[in-house]
Each structure stands twice: as structure tokens, then as C-alpha cells.
Amino acid sequence: MSQAILEVRDLTRTFGGLTAVNRLNFSVSPGSVHGLIGPNGAGKTTTFNVISGFYAPTTGQVIYQGKNVSGMTTVSLARIGLIRTFQGTTLFKEFTVLDNVKIGFHGSVRSTLIAQVLGADREELAAIEKQADELIEFFGLADLRNELAANLSHGHQRALGIAVALAAQPKVLLLDEPFTGMNPEETSRMMTLVRSVRDRGVTIMLVEHDMHAIMGLCDKITVMNFGSLLTEGTPQQVRTNPKVIEAYLGSAIDAA
């Protein structure tokens, strides 16, 4: 197994007296699809937010490409290729599909601000637009290129969200509950999409509430419960692990 591209070491995050994440360890191999799952309140969203720079860890470290990136802001993480998406359909809804993706290319812009104001960045803009069009095509949104994002169907909005993130040239893409609220057809389309993103050489880590949706997708799954690591393994191992079944059943009873 090659060296991990992303690693969480002894991660703890507390809020006041509440420990949301407790001494968590796991590592993500490059080129893999890695799932982080767990019942409600297991601490997976907090973990996600710490990795993506939204919170600093209370103790412990986040290691990315062998470098300690704990406490770095979302912006700085984005600059070095760690890109997150958001739950639901967080988009620039007032923008066209094209402009959404163009904003995604922010990190690729090399022209100075003055050149941009004077219009001397025409070539670069054209190049970005070309790349954006390729991405839009890749996500099957070519016909909707000039449509406002707000007018897109739910499934298309989700796809666009990932297109925007992909435009930012991620090495690791963090997906926040990409399947939540999707019907089976949308789910299977999204699975195909995530696989093809992985095939472009992007490592994917996703947080998901719904265990079944990502069984067919992930190479490795980390399961959390009560802020700690419950177990880890291939989908097959996780599926048959009695502790996992118990945790999910327990939460199902709580929810009922």
C-alpha cells in the first residue's frame, strides 16, 4: 500500500464540555474512494469540518501529503489541492452554470488584478472558459451551460457542485453527504460520476449518513460512533461487522 495522501492522527475536537471527536485515527490512500460513515451524532461532520479547515483540531493532527495542515484555513487548503464540497445544493444560484465553474478555476488564474481590469487577460479567460466547458461536458451539463444554477434540477445542481470543486484542481476531494436526499436513480448517476472523478486521478473522501449508498463505491470505509473509531475496512468487512450493525440499529431505535 502506498503512503497515505491524507491522514488523521489522534484527532480530538471538543465544544465546551462536549467531545465531538475523540482520538480518531485513519488514513486515506491516494487514488482511492474513502468513506467516513456513522450514525447521527457520531462526529463525522465535525471530523469533516476539521479536515476541511472549518474548525481547528483541539488536539491531534491532520496530515496532508506528509505535511501537518492542522488549523490551516479552508482557503489555504484549497490552494494546495484539498477541496471540499457542501451538503445539499450550495451553489452560486444567481450565476450561470458556466460562471459557477469559472469561479471554481480561481486558483488557476495567473493574470494580475490590473491585467484583469484592463482586459489583458483575454487569452487566459478563453483558456479557462475552454477548460470549464470541458468540465461541464464531462458532467453532462453542456446543454445547460448558460442556464442559471437556480433553474437546474436537483440532480444537476449536485453534479454542478462537484464540477465547481473539480475546477479547483483538487488532489483530494472531500464530499459532504453527496447522496443525501437523492432518489435511487440520482444516486446511481452520482455513483458513476464519483467513480469517473476518481478515474481522473483525484482521491475522494466522503462523509455519508446513508451506509448502503456508498457500499458499492468505496475502497475503504471508516466507521465512527460516539466520536471514536468503531471499525475500518472494505465494504464487505464493514457490512458484516456486528458492531456496525449494532451501532446503526441502536441509532435507528433512538430515532424512532
Binding site: T74, A78, F86, T90, L91, A167
Partner: peptide, 11 residues
């Protein structure tokens, strides 16, 4: 419109 999303792509 979406400052968090903008930040997520490095703005």
C-alpha cells in the same frame, strides 16, 4: 452570494 463556497475553491 456564497462566501463559504467561494472560500472552498480558494477565494
Amino acid at each position: 452570494w456564497q462566501d463559504k463556497l467561494a472560500e472552498s475553491v480558494g477565494v
